[in-house]
Design a protein around this nucleic acid. Structure first.
Lengths: 259, 259
DNA sequence: TAGTGGTCTAGACCACCTG
DNA sequence: AGGTGGTCTAGACCACTAG
């Protein structure tokens, strides 16, 4: 032996670890089962805890693990498919879409949101801002800020209790005919406020879904929703019944696709 | 002073750092500008390099920074909006959709893909597998594996060169009438193979877009596309012209939405 | 109170790019 | 060759959860 060892250690330790752990999860662990703690795992694999943690972070990012401070690391269930596409309730709050309003306010839209409404509403007054949470299987999967310009809900009743006010704004909004929607998805990290509602730590990876609702030839409402990236798979179209993808066990697909 | 310091150091250093750096990016740096190197930044802020790196990682995750080994850390341009929704070329490869086939093969579908085709094709023979890359602004933004069962392309000509074969399969596919599509988006990390094509390191955060194409009352094709999460914003519908969201400067939206 | 994951440090070496 | 970011180590302490 000696220098004859031609192994390719090009592969970082944490990457190799991730693979090994991932395989172990598929073959030796059941969903919900708790793994040994980080210090023991690190010792068992002969690496520093920081290195072990790098591997765990990746697996958590891929939705295979769930870590909770003070509790432990458990094997995560497959991601939940949550429908965000059209072909459903159309307007926000229409149909049984599992959103729950938890607050509302009237304030000038922040710059990034004002942009969604286009040039027209540049110097607009305060917009109705509704904060909602989306629950699935008794777990919070998303928070959302819904922005509705006063012009979209002209016939609004008197000042009401915060809860009732949100209901009233949505009800008024539904009187309009929805002409179409627009959507964008990007990666982000949870702001402190959102993180708390999603029961995650600040900075946790999230999927930001920005939506524009069109009616009366203009943007009648807009929203920015924050979905937990670890537990959610966003579905569009009638993909509700689509099976999981789960970059998993044999999903590694080590075939030649080459050239 | 002394114990009178009631500051809330609950906020982790890296989180605070991220905020400070983020603000600095907006006010003092131009897109493309290179930041001081990590060792100097760490010293300047009085933290260990690992802590500084945690902040940079977050900013990179949010698409605000771009780091390249051996080169440096630069301020990233706003994310590129790439259209993935319907209302475009419909079939993959139809229209000018900036995809370029770089290889193809016939092999049994991996388990996770076979699932997309439903029960019917459980024990199916090899499927056509086409690997494509999507370019935008001369940069690779996505790689894709397109799976097409032989049944979907019956009239396929003789064995051709790898490149021509991919073209032929797609051309045959276009003869079918597309009845609808299905889509799911989730967070993942780049496999080594994809990472290379996307000019990123293995494990880089990506958005996995799984699509099913329906024709003749069944799934005629399916694909798993891997988009760079740092540089891309996926758009659906006619959101092509939608302005950036950019969780940015004043986007922090420190208003009360409370209850 | 004991045990977990989360944060932080101060170093070291490596892989990669550029001049 | 020199500088960059990427990986890794071996510690320490903190915040949280649970029995």
């Amino acid at each position: 032996m000696g220098t004859t060892q031609l192994e390719a250690p090009q592969e970082p330790k944490y990457w190799h670890l991730k693979t090994v752990l991932g395989d172990a999860l598929d073959s030796e662990f059941a969903v919900g089962e708790v793994l040994p703690n980080e210090r023991e795992l690190a010792a068992r694999f002969g690496v520093a805890r920081a290195t072990l943690r790098q591997a765990l972070e990746q697996l958590e990012l891929e939705g295979r693990l769930q870590r909770r401070r003070g509790v432990g690391t458990t094997v995560a269930p497959p991601r939940i498919g949550v429908s965000v596409g059209p072909a459903q309730g159309s307007w926000p709050g229409e149909g049984n879409d599992a959103w729950r309003a938890i607050g509302c306010a009237e304030a000038p839209a922040p710059a990034n949101v004002a942009r969604l409404f286009g040039e027209s509403a540049r110097d607009d007054r305060a917009v109705h801002t509704i904060r909602r949470v989306r629950m699935t299987h008794a777990q919070p999967v998303a928070t959302e800020l819904l922005y509705i310009p006063p012009a979209s809900v002209p016939g609004l009743p008197e000042l009401l209790s915060p809860g009732a006010h949100a209901q009233a704004v949505l009800r008024e909004l539904h009187r309009l005919e929805l002409e179409g929607e627009d959507r964008a998805v990007e990666l982000g990290s949870a702001r402190a406020e959102d993180a708390k509602q999603l029961e995650r730590l600040p900075g946790a990876p999230v999927l930001l879904v920005t939506t524009r609702y069109f009616a009366s030839g203009r943007v009648a409402a807009a929203s920015v929703a924050t979905y937990r990236a670890d537990t959610c798979r966003l579905t569009f179209g009638d993909a509700g019944a689509m099976q999981i993808t789960h970059h998993g066990p044999n999903g590694n697909s080590e075939q030649r696709h080459a050239s």
